[in-house]
Design a protein around this nucleic acid. Structure first.
Length: 456
RNA sequence: GUGGUUGUAGCUCAGUUGGUUAGAGCGCCUGAUUGUGGUUCAGGAGGUCGUCGGUUCGAGACCGAUCUUCCACCCCA
Protein backbone atom coordinates (compact mmCIF):
# COMPACT_ATOMS: atom_id res chain seq x y z
CA UNK A 1 0.00 0.00 0.00
CA UNK A 2 3.01 2.25 -0.15
CA UNK A 3 2.19 3.28 -3.69
CA UNK A 4 -0.78 5.36 -4.64
CA UNK A 5 -3.43 3.19 -6.28
CA UNK A 6 -4.37 4.06 -9.84
CA UNK A 7 -6.49 2.95 -12.76
CA UNK A 8 -5.33 2.12 -16.30
CA UNK A 9 -4.91 4.80 -18.90
CA UNK A 10 -8.12 5.73 -20.66
CA UNK A 11 -10.40 4.40 -17.93
CA UNK A 12 -12.35 6.37 -15.34
CA UNK A 13 -14.08 6.14 -11.99
CA UNK A 14 -17.49 7.76 -11.80
CA UNK A 15 -18.71 9.73 -8.80
CA UNK A 16 -22.37 9.57 -7.71
CA UNK A 17 -23.08 12.82 -9.55
CA UNK A 18 -21.43 11.56 -12.71
CA UNK A 19 -23.36 8.31 -12.54
CA UNK A 20 -26.57 10.28 -12.10
CA UNK A 21 -25.78 12.35 -15.17
CA UNK A 22 -24.82 9.29 -17.19
CA UNK A 23 -28.02 7.57 -16.16
CA UNK A 24 -29.97 10.60 -17.30
CA UNK A 25 -28.52 10.13 -20.79
CA UNK A 26 -28.92 6.36 -20.71
CA UNK A 27 -32.53 6.63 -19.64
CA UNK A 28 -33.32 9.22 -22.28
CA UNK A 29 -31.81 7.11 -25.04
CA UNK A 30 -33.34 3.91 -23.74
CA UNK A 31 -36.74 5.56 -23.55
CA UNK A 32 -36.50 6.73 -27.16
CA UNK A 33 -35.33 3.30 -28.32
CA UNK A 34 -38.33 1.71 -26.69
CA UNK A 35 -40.86 4.16 -28.09
CA UNK A 36 -39.50 3.28 -31.52
CA UNK A 37 -40.10 -0.41 -30.84
CA UNK A 38 -36.58 -1.67 -30.17
CA UNK A 39 -35.93 -4.50 -27.74
CA UNK A 40 -32.86 -4.84 -25.54
CA UNK A 41 -30.27 -7.58 -25.72
CA UNK A 42 -26.90 -7.99 -24.04
CA UNK A 43 -23.83 -9.89 -25.17
CA UNK A 44 -20.67 -10.93 -23.28
CA UNK A 45 -17.96 -8.38 -22.66
CA UNK A 46 -15.51 -10.71 -24.36
CA UNK A 47 -15.90 -12.87 -27.43
CA UNK A 48 -13.86 -15.55 -29.14
CA UNK A 49 -11.05 -13.81 -30.96
CA UNK A 50 -12.08 -15.15 -34.34
CA UNK A 51 -15.47 -13.49 -33.93
CA UNK A 52 -13.83 -10.08 -33.77
CA UNK A 53 -10.51 -10.31 -35.57
CA UNK A 54 -10.51 -9.22 -39.18
CA UNK A 55 -13.88 -7.49 -38.93
CA UNK A 56 -12.62 -3.95 -38.46
CA UNK A 57 -9.64 -3.87 -40.79
CA UNK A 58 -5.97 -4.02 -39.84
CA UNK A 59 -6.23 -0.88 -37.78
CA UNK A 60 -9.15 -2.37 -35.90
CA UNK A 61 -7.27 -5.59 -35.15
CA UNK A 62 -4.50 -3.55 -33.61
CA UNK A 63 -6.97 -1.78 -31.33
CA UNK A 64 -8.68 -4.92 -30.06
CA UNK A 65 -7.74 -5.84 -26.50
CA UNK A 66 -6.63 -9.47 -26.50
CA UNK A 67 -7.06 -11.62 -23.43
CA UNK A 68 -4.12 -13.81 -22.53
CA UNK A 69 -4.99 -17.51 -22.24
CA UNK A 70 -5.18 -18.88 -18.72
CA UNK A 71 -2.67 -21.33 -17.38
CA UNK A 72 0.65 -22.13 -18.96
CA UNK A 73 -0.07 -20.28 -22.16
CA UNK A 74 3.52 -20.29 -23.36
CA UNK A 75 3.60 -24.07 -23.61
CA UNK A 76 1.08 -23.86 -26.45
CA UNK A 77 2.64 -20.80 -28.05
CA UNK A 78 3.70 -20.90 -31.65
CA UNK A 79 7.45 -21.39 -31.22
CA UNK A 80 8.31 -20.14 -34.65
CA UNK A 81 6.43 -16.90 -34.10
CA UNK A 82 7.93 -16.64 -30.63
CA UNK A 83 11.50 -17.09 -31.87
CA UNK A 84 11.11 -14.67 -34.74
CA UNK A 85 9.31 -12.19 -32.46
CA UNK A 86 6.33 -12.08 -34.83
CA UNK A 87 3.74 -10.60 -32.47
CA UNK A 88 0.82 -10.93 -34.85
CA UNK A 89 1.40 -14.60 -35.38
CA UNK A 90 2.15 -15.25 -31.74
CA UNK A 91 -1.04 -13.56 -30.55
CA UNK A 92 -3.40 -16.15 -32.00
CA UNK A 93 -1.54 -18.94 -30.24
CA UNK A 94 -1.55 -17.37 -26.78
CA UNK A 95 -4.89 -15.52 -26.87
CA UNK A 96 -8.24 -17.02 -27.80
CA UNK A 97 -10.51 -14.33 -26.40
CA UNK A 98 -10.81 -10.60 -26.90
CA UNK A 99 -12.77 -7.71 -25.40
CA UNK A 100 -15.78 -6.45 -27.33
CA UNK A 101 -14.69 -3.70 -29.73
CA UNK A 102 -18.14 -2.50 -30.77
CA UNK A 103 -21.73 -3.71 -30.50
CA UNK A 104 -22.46 -4.36 -34.15
CA UNK A 105 -20.29 -7.39 -34.79
CA UNK A 106 -21.42 -9.16 -31.60
CA UNK A 107 -24.97 -8.39 -32.68
CA UNK A 108 -24.37 -9.98 -36.07
CA UNK A 109 -23.01 -13.03 -34.26
CA UNK A 110 -26.07 -13.02 -32.02
CA UNK A 111 -28.45 -12.89 -34.97
CA UNK A 112 -26.78 -15.82 -36.71
CA UNK A 113 -26.64 -17.86 -33.53
CA UNK A 114 -30.26 -17.18 -32.58
CA UNK A 115 -31.75 -17.01 -36.07
CA UNK A 116 -34.40 -19.64 -35.35
CA UNK A 117 -35.75 -17.85 -32.27
CA UNK A 118 -35.76 -14.36 -33.76
CA UNK A 119 -38.86 -12.82 -35.30
CA UNK A 120 -37.73 -10.72 -38.28
CA UNK A 121 -37.47 -7.85 -38.90
CA UNK A 122 -35.66 -7.76 -35.57
CA UNK A 123 -35.19 -4.39 -33.91
CA UNK A 124 -32.77 -4.58 -31.05
CA UNK A 125 -31.00 -2.06 -28.90
CA UNK A 126 -27.93 -2.61 -26.80
CA UNK A 127 -26.26 -0.35 -24.25
CA UNK A 128 -22.95 -1.75 -23.06
CA UNK A 129 -19.30 -0.77 -22.71
CA UNK A 130 -16.76 -1.48 -25.45
CA UNK A 131 -12.98 -1.41 -25.28
CA UNK A 132 -10.35 -0.12 -27.65
CA UNK A 133 -6.58 -0.13 -27.14
CA UNK A 134 -6.44 3.37 -28.54
CA UNK A 135 -4.33 6.24 -27.30
CA UNK A 136 -6.69 8.40 -25.25
CA UNK A 137 -7.53 12.02 -26.00
CA UNK A 138 -10.36 14.25 -24.98
CA UNK A 139 -13.57 12.31 -25.55
CA UNK A 140 -11.59 9.22 -26.51
CA UNK A 141 -11.32 6.51 -23.94
CA UNK A 142 -10.17 2.94 -23.85
CA UNK A 143 -13.38 1.91 -22.14
CA UNK A 144 -16.57 3.64 -23.20
CA UNK A 145 -20.26 3.00 -23.73
CA UNK A 146 -22.06 2.66 -26.98
CA UNK A 147 -25.83 2.81 -27.30
CA UNK A 148 -26.83 1.01 -30.46
CA UNK A 149 -30.14 0.45 -32.21
CA UNK A 150 -30.22 -1.78 -35.27
CA UNK A 151 -32.80 -3.48 -37.46
CA UNK A 152 -32.03 -6.68 -39.32
CA UNK A 153 -34.15 -8.37 -41.91
CA UNK A 154 -35.58 -5.41 -43.76
CA UNK A 155 -34.30 -3.67 -46.88
CA UNK A 156 -36.81 -0.88 -46.53
CA UNK A 157 -35.50 2.66 -46.66
CA UNK A 158 -38.19 3.57 -44.15
CA UNK A 159 -35.80 2.22 -41.57
CA UNK A 160 -33.25 4.87 -42.47
CA UNK A 161 -35.99 7.47 -42.23
CA UNK A 162 -36.94 6.24 -38.78
CA UNK A 163 -33.36 6.26 -37.57
CA UNK A 164 -33.04 9.92 -38.50
CA UNK A 165 -36.20 10.57 -36.54
CA UNK A 166 -34.77 8.56 -33.67
CA UNK A 167 -31.66 10.72 -33.57
CA UNK A 168 -33.83 13.81 -33.63
CA UNK A 169 -36.03 12.46 -30.84
CA UNK A 170 -33.09 11.73 -28.55
CA UNK A 171 -31.36 15.08 -29.04
CA UNK A 172 -34.63 16.89 -28.56
CA UNK A 173 -35.21 15.01 -25.31
CA UNK A 174 -31.69 15.94 -24.18
CA UNK A 175 -32.39 19.58 -25.12
CA UNK A 176 -29.31 19.52 -27.29
CA UNK A 177 -29.80 21.97 -30.14
CA UNK A 178 -27.71 22.44 -33.23
CA UNK A 179 -26.88 18.81 -33.89
CA UNK A 180 -26.16 17.94 -37.52
CA UNK A 181 -27.00 14.52 -38.87
CA UNK A 182 -24.75 13.98 -41.85
CA UNK A 183 -25.77 11.41 -44.37
CA UNK A 184 -24.06 9.84 -47.33
CA UNK A 185 -24.33 6.62 -49.28
CA UNK A 186 -21.67 4.04 -49.91
CA UNK A 187 -23.08 3.55 -53.41
CA UNK A 188 -22.35 7.17 -54.25
CA UNK A 189 -18.79 6.76 -53.04
CA UNK A 190 -18.24 3.60 -55.05
CA UNK A 191 -19.94 5.27 -58.00
CA UNK A 192 -17.49 8.16 -57.86
CA UNK A 193 -14.58 5.73 -57.53
CA UNK A 194 -15.92 3.94 -60.60
CA UNK A 195 -16.21 7.13 -62.62
CA UNK A 196 -12.63 8.13 -61.85
CA UNK A 197 -11.36 4.63 -62.51
CA UNK A 198 -10.39 3.86 -58.93
CA UNK A 199 -12.90 1.16 -58.08
CA UNK A 200 -10.18 -1.09 -56.74
CA UNK A 201 -8.95 1.68 -54.45
CA UNK A 202 -12.31 2.53 -52.92
CA UNK A 203 -11.13 2.49 -49.29
CA UNK A 204 -8.02 4.60 -49.94
CA UNK A 205 -10.14 6.97 -51.97
CA UNK A 206 -12.81 7.40 -49.30
CA UNK A 207 -10.34 7.71 -46.45
CA UNK A 208 -8.66 10.57 -48.31
CA UNK A 209 -11.94 12.21 -49.28
CA UNK A 210 -13.14 12.04 -45.69
CA UNK A 211 -10.37 14.41 -44.67
CA UNK A 212 -11.46 17.21 -47.00
CA UNK A 213 -12.83 19.57 -44.35
CA UNK A 214 -9.83 18.89 -42.15
CA UNK A 215 -6.78 19.08 -44.40
CA UNK A 216 -8.17 20.83 -47.47
CA UNK A 217 -8.48 20.09 -51.15
CA UNK A 218 -4.79 20.14 -52.07
CA UNK A 219 -3.70 17.71 -49.38
CA UNK A 220 -6.56 15.38 -50.25
CA UNK A 221 -5.43 15.33 -53.85
CA UNK A 222 -1.87 14.68 -52.77
CA UNK A 223 -2.95 11.77 -50.62
CA UNK A 224 -5.01 10.28 -53.43
CA UNK A 225 -2.11 10.61 -55.80
CA UNK A 226 0.22 8.92 -53.34
CA UNK A 227 -2.27 6.05 -53.00
CA UNK A 228 -2.05 5.46 -56.73
CA UNK A 229 -5.14 7.22 -58.00
CA UNK A 230 -4.47 8.69 -61.43
CA UNK A 231 -4.08 12.43 -62.03
CA UNK A 232 -6.71 12.08 -64.71
CA UNK A 233 -9.17 10.57 -62.28
CA UNK A 234 -8.49 13.21 -59.64
CA UNK A 235 -9.22 16.02 -62.08
CA UNK A 236 -12.60 14.43 -62.71
CA UNK A 237 -13.30 15.00 -59.01
CA UNK A 238 -13.09 18.76 -59.36
CA UNK A 239 -16.87 19.39 -59.29
CA UNK A 240 -17.01 17.36 -56.08
CA UNK A 241 -14.70 19.70 -54.19
CA UNK A 242 -16.86 22.69 -54.94
CA UNK A 243 -20.07 20.92 -54.01
CA UNK A 244 -22.18 23.05 -51.70
CA UNK A 245 -25.64 24.38 -51.09
CA UNK A 246 -28.85 22.60 -50.24
CA UNK A 247 -29.43 18.89 -50.17
CA UNK A 248 -31.31 19.10 -53.48
CA UNK A 249 -28.76 21.20 -55.36
CA UNK A 250 -25.92 18.92 -54.23
CA UNK A 251 -27.94 15.99 -55.50
CA UNK A 252 -28.33 17.67 -58.86
CA UNK A 253 -24.57 18.08 -59.26
CA UNK A 254 -24.04 14.50 -58.18
CA UNK A 255 -26.47 13.27 -60.79
CA UNK A 256 -24.28 14.88 -63.45
CA UNK A 257 -21.04 13.53 -62.04
CA UNK A 258 -22.45 10.04 -61.66
CA UNK A 259 -24.45 9.92 -64.90
CA UNK A 260 -22.53 6.89 -66.14
CA UNK A 261 -22.54 4.95 -62.89
CA UNK A 262 -25.55 2.71 -62.29
CA UNK A 263 -24.47 2.11 -58.72
CA UNK A 264 -23.96 5.80 -58.06
CA UNK A 265 -27.37 6.75 -59.41
CA UNK A 266 -28.96 4.09 -57.21
CA UNK A 267 -27.30 5.73 -54.21
CA UNK A 268 -28.71 9.09 -55.24
CA UNK A 269 -32.19 7.63 -55.54
CA UNK A 270 -31.93 6.20 -52.05
CA UNK A 271 -30.83 9.52 -50.61
CA UNK A 272 -33.58 11.34 -52.46
CA UNK A 273 -36.16 8.99 -51.00
CA UNK A 274 -34.90 9.54 -47.47
CA UNK A 275 -34.60 13.28 -47.89
CA UNK A 276 -38.11 13.62 -49.28
CA UNK A 277 -39.59 11.62 -46.45
CA UNK A 278 -37.72 13.62 -43.82
CA UNK A 279 -38.71 16.95 -45.29
CA UNK A 280 -42.35 15.78 -45.21
CA UNK A 281 -42.10 14.54 -41.64
CA UNK A 282 -39.91 17.37 -40.35
CA UNK A 283 -37.22 17.35 -37.68
CA UNK A 284 -37.47 19.24 -34.40
CA UNK A 285 -33.93 20.10 -33.34
CA UNK A 286 -31.47 18.31 -35.61
CA UNK A 287 -30.54 19.19 -39.18
CA UNK A 288 -30.10 16.65 -41.95
CA UNK A 289 -27.19 17.41 -44.21
CA UNK A 290 -25.82 15.64 -47.24
CA UNK A 291 -22.07 15.20 -46.97
CA UNK A 292 -20.44 13.33 -49.84
CA UNK A 293 -17.11 13.38 -48.05
CA UNK A 294 -18.55 11.38 -45.18
CA UNK A 295 -16.85 8.02 -45.44
CA UNK A 296 -16.13 7.04 -41.89
CA UNK A 297 -14.60 3.68 -41.32
CA UNK A 298 -16.57 0.58 -41.17
CA UNK A 299 -15.82 -1.35 -44.27
CA UNK A 300 -19.14 -3.11 -44.05
CA UNK A 301 -21.50 -0.23 -44.84
CA UNK A 302 -23.18 -0.75 -48.19
CA UNK A 303 -25.90 1.88 -48.30
CA UNK A 304 -26.61 4.85 -46.07
CA UNK A 305 -23.84 6.18 -43.85
CA UNK A 306 -24.68 8.41 -40.88
CA UNK A 307 -22.57 10.55 -38.68
CA UNK A 308 -23.77 12.98 -36.04
CA UNK A 309 -21.78 16.10 -35.22
CA UNK A 310 -22.08 17.96 -31.96
CA UNK A 311 -23.13 21.61 -32.14
CA UNK A 312 -20.35 23.69 -33.70
CA UNK A 313 -19.35 25.49 -30.52
CA UNK A 314 -18.26 22.21 -28.93
CA UNK A 315 -14.98 20.96 -30.25
CA UNK A 316 -15.40 17.24 -30.14
CA UNK A 317 -15.56 14.52 -32.75
CA UNK A 318 -18.76 12.83 -33.75
CA UNK A 319 -21.28 11.88 -31.08
CA UNK A 320 -22.91 9.14 -33.10
CA UNK A 321 -22.75 7.20 -36.29
CA UNK A 322 -24.25 4.36 -38.23
CA UNK A 323 -25.35 3.02 -41.54
CA UNK A 324 -26.74 0.23 -43.69
CA UNK A 325 -24.88 -3.02 -44.16
CA UNK A 326 -26.50 -5.40 -46.60
CA UNK A 327 -24.58 -8.46 -45.63
CA UNK A 328 -23.27 -8.14 -42.11
CA UNK A 329 -24.27 -11.61 -41.01
CA UNK A 330 -22.64 -12.98 -44.17
CA UNK A 331 -19.32 -13.05 -42.34
CA UNK A 332 -20.90 -15.56 -39.96
CA UNK A 333 -22.45 -17.60 -42.75
CA UNK A 334 -25.97 -16.18 -42.95
CA UNK A 335 -26.62 -14.66 -46.34
CA UNK A 336 -28.95 -11.91 -47.50
CA UNK A 337 -29.76 -10.44 -44.15
CA UNK A 338 -29.78 -6.68 -44.47
CA UNK A 339 -29.19 -4.56 -41.45
CA UNK A 340 -29.14 -0.89 -40.62
CA UNK A 341 -28.37 0.81 -37.37
CA UNK A 342 -27.12 3.79 -35.46
CA UNK A 343 -24.99 4.34 -32.41
CA UNK A 344 -24.86 7.02 -29.73
CA UNK A 345 -21.53 7.74 -28.05
CA UNK A 346 -22.57 8.17 -24.46
CA UNK A 347 -19.27 9.49 -23.16
CA UNK A 348 -19.04 12.17 -25.80
CA UNK A 349 -22.65 13.22 -25.43
CA UNK A 350 -21.86 13.57 -21.73
CA UNK A 351 -18.98 15.94 -22.47
CA UNK A 352 -21.15 17.98 -24.81
CA UNK A 353 -24.01 18.31 -22.31
CA UNK A 354 -21.51 19.21 -19.59
CA UNK A 355 -19.88 21.87 -21.70
CA UNK A 356 -23.21 23.42 -22.68
CA UNK A 357 -24.58 23.08 -19.17
CA UNK A 358 -27.58 21.08 -20.27
CA UNK A 359 -27.96 18.62 -17.41
CA UNK A 360 -31.15 19.28 -15.49
CA UNK A 361 -30.71 20.50 -11.90
CA UNK A 362 -32.67 17.54 -10.64
CA UNK A 363 -30.07 14.92 -11.59
CA UNK A 364 -28.14 15.81 -8.43
CA UNK A 365 -31.03 15.06 -6.15
CA UNK A 366 -30.68 11.78 -4.33
CA UNK A 367 -33.05 11.97 -1.39
CA UNK A 368 -36.06 14.23 -0.98
CA UNK A 369 -35.95 14.52 2.79
CA UNK A 370 -33.55 13.88 5.66
CA UNK A 371 -34.77 13.40 9.25
CA UNK A 372 -32.53 14.87 11.90
CA UNK A 373 -31.55 12.39 14.59
CA UNK A 374 -31.95 13.66 18.17
CA UNK A 375 -31.57 10.33 19.92
CA UNK A 376 -32.95 6.80 19.93
CA UNK A 377 -36.46 7.71 21.03
CA UNK A 378 -36.78 10.41 18.38
CA UNK A 379 -35.11 8.21 15.74
CA UNK A 380 -37.66 5.46 16.25
CA UNK A 381 -40.50 7.95 16.00
CA UNK A 382 -38.90 9.38 12.83
CA UNK A 383 -38.49 5.97 11.25
CA UNK A 384 -42.19 5.35 11.65
CA UNK A 385 -42.89 8.46 9.61
CA UNK A 386 -40.11 7.57 7.15
CA UNK A 387 -41.71 4.18 6.61
CA UNK A 388 -44.96 5.84 5.64
CA UNK A 389 -43.18 8.32 3.34
CA UNK A 390 -41.28 5.55 1.60
CA UNK A 391 -44.48 3.61 1.06
CA UNK A 392 -45.82 6.73 -0.60
CA UNK A 393 -42.84 6.66 -2.95
CA UNK A 394 -40.90 9.49 -1.34
CA UNK A 395 -37.16 8.99 -0.95
CA UNK A 396 -36.50 9.60 2.73
CA UNK A 397 -33.79 8.80 5.22
CA UNK A 398 -32.74 9.24 8.81
CA UNK A 399 -29.34 10.58 9.80
CA UNK A 400 -27.91 7.49 11.46
CA UNK A 401 -26.35 9.16 14.47
CA UNK A 402 -27.45 11.72 17.01
CA UNK A 403 -24.64 13.98 15.93
CA UNK A 404 -24.56 17.71 16.47
CA UNK A 405 -27.35 19.41 14.64
CA UNK A 406 -24.92 21.58 12.71
CA UNK A 407 -23.24 18.49 11.38
CA UNK A 408 -26.52 16.92 10.29
CA UNK A 409 -27.72 20.12 8.63
CA UNK A 410 -24.43 20.52 6.81
CA UNK A 411 -24.71 16.96 5.60
CA UNK A 412 -28.17 17.66 4.17
CA UNK A 413 -26.89 20.81 2.55
CA UNK A 414 -23.91 19.15 0.92
CA UNK A 415 -25.96 16.31 -0.41
CA UNK A 416 -28.40 18.73 -1.97
CA UNK A 417 -31.30 17.34 0.00
CA UNK A 418 -34.15 19.81 -0.46
CA UNK A 419 -36.03 19.14 2.82
CA UNK A 420 -35.14 18.37 6.42
CA UNK A 421 -37.52 17.20 9.12
CA UNK A 422 -36.86 17.87 12.77
CA UNK A 423 -38.52 15.64 15.31
CA UNK A 424 -37.58 16.31 18.95
CA UNK A 425 -39.38 15.81 22.19
CA UNK A 426 -41.67 18.71 21.52
CA UNK A 427 -42.81 17.33 18.17
CA UNK A 428 -43.35 13.86 19.59
CA UNK A 429 -45.68 15.13 22.31
CA UNK A 430 -47.68 17.16 19.86
CA UNK A 431 -47.46 14.55 17.07
CA UNK A 432 -46.14 17.09 14.60
CA UNK A 433 -43.14 17.37 12.31
CA UNK A 434 -41.03 20.45 11.75
CA UNK A 435 -40.40 20.59 8.01
CA UNK A 436 -37.59 22.82 6.83
CA UNK A 437 -37.24 23.88 3.22
CA UNK A 438 -33.49 24.05 2.65
CA UNK A 439 -33.60 26.28 -0.40
CA UNK A 440 -35.87 28.93 1.13
CA UNK A 441 -34.67 28.47 4.71
CA UNK A 442 -38.25 28.46 5.99
CA UNK A 443 -39.78 25.93 8.36
CA UNK A 444 -43.21 25.06 9.71
CA UNK A 445 -44.90 22.43 11.84
CA UNK A 446 -47.06 19.98 9.92
CA UNK A 447 -48.96 16.73 10.43
CA UNK A 448 -47.86 13.45 8.87
CA UNK A 449 -50.55 13.83 6.20
CA UNK A 450 -49.30 17.30 5.26
CA UNK A 451 -45.76 16.01 5.23
CA UNK A 452 -46.65 13.45 2.59
CA UNK A 453 -48.54 15.89 0.42
CA UNK A 454 -45.80 18.55 0.68
CA UNK A 455 -43.07 16.15 -0.31
CA UNK A 456 -44.86 14.28 -3.01
C1' G B 1 1.69 2.26 -33.11
C1' U B 2 4.64 7.49 -34.31
C1' G B 3 5.74 12.64 -32.66
C1' G B 4 4.83 16.29 -28.97
C1' U B 5 2.67 18.03 -24.19
C1' U B 6 1.27 18.01 -18.91
C1' G B 7 1.85 16.62 -13.57
C1' U B 8 3.23 21.45 -6.97
C1' A B 9 -2.35 21.13 -0.70
C1' G B 10 -9.06 18.07 -1.72
C1' C B 11 -9.70 21.80 -6.28
C1' U B 12 -7.65 25.95 -9.51
C1' C B 13 -2.92 27.64 -9.87
C1' A B 14 1.90 30.86 -8.21
C1' G B 15 7.01 29.46 -7.21
C1' U B 16 12.07 34.67 -10.51
C1' U B 17 19.32 32.49 -13.86
C1' G B 18 19.25 25.56 -9.16
C1' G B 19 20.25 28.49 -2.71
C1' U B 20 17.35 28.61 4.40
C1' U B 21 11.36 26.21 7.44
C1' A B 22 7.34 25.48 -0.74
C1' G B 23 2.91 29.94 -1.21
C1' A B 24 -2.25 32.04 -2.65
C1' G B 25 -7.50 31.66 -3.54
C1' C B 26 -11.35 28.33 -2.91
C1' G B 27 -12.57 24.04 -0.09
C1' C B 28 -11.94 21.33 4.66
C1' C B 29 -11.83 21.18 10.35
C1' U B 30 -12.89 23.86 15.22
C1' G B 31 -15.30 27.79 17.72
C1' A B 32 -18.68 32.29 18.06
C1' U B 33 -24.21 29.46 17.85
C1' U B 34 -25.57 22.53 23.31
C1' G B 35 -32.80 22.73 18.20
C1' U B 36 -30.81 24.94 12.56
C1' G B 37 -27.18 24.28 6.99
C1' G B 38 -26.16 27.72 2.94
C1' U B 39 -24.07 34.23 4.80
C1' U B 40 -20.41 36.63 8.50
C1' C B 41 -16.24 36.65 12.04
C1' A B 42 -11.92 34.30 14.73
C1' G B 43 -8.60 30.34 14.82
C1' G B 44 -6.53 25.66 12.70
C1' A B 45 -5.06 21.30 9.94
C1' G B 46 -3.24 19.73 5.32
C1' G B 47 2.30 18.94 0.45
C1' U B 48 7.18 11.75 -0.06
C1' C B 49 6.59 18.96 -5.35
C1' G B 50 3.44 12.02 -10.30
C1' U B 51 7.13 7.84 -9.48
C1' C B 52 12.16 5.86 -9.74
C1' G B 53 17.12 6.99 -10.72
C1' G B 54 21.13 10.59 -12.04
C1' U B 55 24.02 15.53 -12.09
C1' U B 56 25.30 18.99 -7.94
C1' C B 57 28.03 21.28 -1.81
C1' G B 58 22.70 22.00 -2.66
C1' A B 59 17.03 19.99 -7.17
C1' G B 60 10.04 21.71 -7.06
C1' A B 61 13.41 23.86 -10.90
C1' C B 62 18.65 20.51 -14.77
C1' C B 63 19.21 15.21 -17.19
C1' G B 64 17.23 10.01 -18.01
C1' A B 65 13.45 6.36 -17.49
C1' U B 66 8.47 5.34 -16.32
C1' C B 67 3.28 6.40 -15.35
C1' U B 68 -0.60 9.93 -16.23
C1' U B 69 -3.06 14.13 -18.95
C1' C B 70 -3.95 16.64 -23.22
C1' C B 71 -2.65 17.48 -28.58
C1' A B 72 -1.30 16.03 -33.73
C1' C B 73 -0.94 11.63 -36.96
C1' C B 74 -3.48 6.90 -37.51
C1' C B 75 -8.16 5.59 -36.66
C1' C B 76 -12.74 6.41 -34.36
C1' A B 77 -17.92 6.97 -30.36
Amino acid sequence: MAQKPSIPKGTRDFTPIEVAKRNYIFNTIRGAFETFGFQPIETPSFENSETLMGKYGDEGDRLIFKILNSGDYLSKANTEAYNTKDSNKLTSSISEKALRYDLTVPFARYVVQHQNEIEFPFKRYQIQPVWRADRPQKGRFREFYQCDADVVGSDSLWQEVEFIQLYDTVFKALKLEGVTIKINNRKILSGIAEVIGASNKLIDFTVALDKLDKIGEEKVKEEMLSKGISQDGISKLQPLFSLSGSFESQMESLRTILATSKDGLKGIEELAFINLAISELGLTTATLQLDVTLARGLNYYTGAIFEVSAPQEVKIGSIGGGGRYDDLTGIFGMKDMSGVGISFGLDRIYLVLEELNLFPETVNKSVEVLFINFGDKEALFSLKAIKVLREAGINAELYPEAAKMKKQMTHANRRNIPFVVLVGEEEITSSTYTLKDMTLGEQYKVSLQDLISKLK
